[in-house]
Design a protein around this nucleic acid. Sequence first.
DNA 1: AGATTTTTCTATAACGTTTTAGAATGGAGT
DNA 2: ACTCCATTCTAAAACGTTATAGAAAAATCT
Lengths: 344, 344
Amino acid sequence: MTKKAPASKAGREKPTLKTISEQSGMAVPTVSRALADAPDISESTKKKIRQIAKELGYIPNRAGVGLRTGRTNVISLVMSTEREMMNVTARLLTSIGVSLRETTYHLNVVPVLPDDDPMDAVRYIVENQTADGIIFNQVRTEDARARYLMDRNFPFATHGRTKWAGQHAYYDFDNFTYARLGVDELVRKGRRNIVLVAPPLDQNYAMEMVDGAKAAADKHSASLHVAQQVDSDATTLETREWATRKMASDPNIDGFICASTNATMAVVAGMESLGRYVGKDFDIVSKEAIPLLQFVRPEIIVVHENVDITGAFLARATIQAIQKPDISPMQCLEVPDINALRSL
Amino acid sequence: MTKKAPASKAGREKPTLKTISEQSGMAVPTVSRALADAPDISESTKKKIRQIAKELGYIPNRAGVGLRTGRTNVISLVMSTEREMMNVTARLLTSIGVSLRETTYHLNVVPVLPDDDPMDAVRYIVENQTADGIIFNQVRTEDARARYLMDRNFPFATHGRTKWAGQHAYYDFDNFTYARLGVDELVRKGRRNIVLVAPPLDQNYAMEMVDGAKAAADKHSASLHVAQQVDSDATTLETREWATRKMASDPNIDGFICASTNATMAVVAGMESLGRYVGKDFDIVSKEAIPLLQFVRPEIIVVHENVDITGAFLARATIQAIQKPDISPMQCLEVPDINALRSL
DNA sequence: AGATTTTTCTATAACGTTTTAGAATGGAGT
DNA sequence: ACTCCATTCTAAAACGTTATAGAAAAATCT
């Protein structure tokens, strides 16, 4: 008799190892080991079992696996939600999610609001073991989350580097080089009074930008003023007003370098409200993840930050940290595309 | 003997029902039932058990619960990743995630790329039971996902309405009213040759906008041209170029109504490249989720779409669909803030 | 042929939870 | 004193998986 008629009603139940066991005549653990490609199962039964599993469309029950192994097959993205960086973050999230498709890992997302303690989410995940690995962004130089996870040997990867970057997986955009090349470019365009619109300086990448911009400014003997934004979630309005005030107090300013689309838009808007136009009275360098500036204001000097690659890398790096904790963590520093800058 | 010394090493293991069982002297199922507030457990033992559970910081093991009950305590957000709408989507994701914090549900995110078959993600979730409920956005009038889920009685909620909206949970921004009021406002500003920059017309909200704009245009006997964007993921550049061409062929155009920040920025940029300025030579109405336009180009008429509320509503609606499938689905149609329009 | 090893499989148990059926206790009704 | 019922608990089983230990069969060695 075929097994098509047991429940009669709506086709078949979800197949389990037991289903395969019954169809193949092998015991359940044998089926399990065969699908795991264990060495103590013969090739012939492996082939047979794989065949049946495929026919049935067998997919392991995650709760069963989780209960037995203690693993969750989940990776958590602890995601900062600062408006400034929402575009980058959303794109990052997308590429991580797409990368995980080909794996057994599911993507769990935990948003962190600006007023939240960033440690809460991480602690929750570790203590309750709701994920096998964590990815987080907007890292600080001495990031408490990184310290916490390293102390507990919990697998993780970061977007951006901490001061302990040598010891954990990360992907970072080389903001030092970005700022250096950006200032180079502004100087090449004849700008000599440059403002660096810096993110909060406890963010590691902000300091990288400061150092890079200073290095280039010194080299060219250009004037560089570092202006810190009001706070890490400064609204576009605040940035705009700030730019306007800044300009009123120092009309010689003729160059800006920014870290986000929103900040750039705000500065440009503030300047225009004073009758000063980008490409004519000043130049501005920005990076962005989702192309907008270059189409809307072609005069802006744009460096593209490829967050698709970032997400794919972080996904793989996290999985490696989970599965091969002993080999050295995956690390990457993305060098800004110099040609993109030069071609302008 | 106390049980503090069994493993000696790193403090305590993760507490389970068994731990509480041992400490309280009650059997494991009794503990389980007590924590579930079952009627056949005395108040006194309930109190005692709750107390111990709290002291130990007990949190149920998700795999155990999942294996036994078949539930996952996961809600999946099947998220469209169109650039146009990334801001809205990211914000929606955030507010859903924040809302779920107070629940037992975790948020699983599945990005859908523009070229993907949107059904794949939904089918995967349902067939493999990786979530108890689904939220998705960018719905079409006859959305295959909604049809599929309804046919299988799988709990879900949508951002936007389908043609079967009466039968499922949804939250929608009233795009009909938005477009109607937007055109009203343009006419009030003396604009009479209006272009509706519409999203792809198979998206339900696009048709709503068309109908609303037409209604208002007819009322005022204004000219309305419906211009469909190139495709659902039209780049900002394409929109800009389109706007420029459009303008060249019909220089009388003096009003626009758009559905997204990016489209609006692109149209404004295109117009300005022809020497036509917003607030002077033409007016433009847009909605957006993350405030940007109003600070960068105050002349733009902006309607705020409150995606925080949206996410909170969809989270609750999904949970209700999961837990109380029999009562009627939660539905909400957000009316655009008329005063925000009038005050400009 | 007997002893030993290798290959290939199976039985059992366990992960943490909840459901079901039933046991023990005590109080009320006759 | 007996039954009956309500209250409050427990024992056993089950969800699907994998790890461990060991059994059966086949192959190799002496």
